[in-house]
Design a binder for these strands. Structure first.
Length: 116
DNA sequence: CTGGTGACTTATC
DNA sequence: AGATAAGCCACCA
């Protein structure tokens, strides 16, 4: 399991993304208290998405585009999202203004307390 | 310790 | 819109 606070928060936050919504790597990192740690979110998705049963497909990049390459599961992620009602526009870009999950400060703190 | 790496992001052109 | 560069940070060989 992940012991350090940052990792635990990231895991908790990803788990909290509602179906039909998405979050960005940087957004999760920001909610977890480290705005610059987007690449650590990626690392955790690699190491824990399966073991922690995370809704990994709900995490995309800031532009609303899927980060995976075609041979890495791009189509599976897109399929999972579309199944949840997430809509893609031109250039495989999700309408983030409609689908990005933006919890309030209080919700975020409830999910990932700052004092761990 | 050092250097390489990544499902990123921001700034610039 | 696409390309490039630099910053980022935890992990790992």
């Amino acid at each position: 399991m992940t012991q350090n606070p940052f990792s635990r928060k990231v895991i908790a936050l990803i788990r909290a993304i509602p179906a039909g919504r998405v979050a960005s790597y940087g957004g999760i990192a920001r909610l977890a208290g480290s705005p610059r740690a987007a690449r650590q979110v990626v690392r955790l998705l690699h190491s824990s998405s399966r073991k922690e049963c995370l809704p990994w497909h709900r995490v995309v990049n800031r532009e609303g585009r899927i980060g995976l390459k075609d041979f890495e599961g791009y189509s599976e992620q897109k399929r999972r999202l579309e199944l949840e009602g997430v809509e893609f526009g031109p250039h495989g870009r999700i309408y983030m203004e409609r689908f990005e999950w933006r919890p309030t400060q209080e919700e975020a703190r409830r999910i990932a307390p700052l004092d761990e």
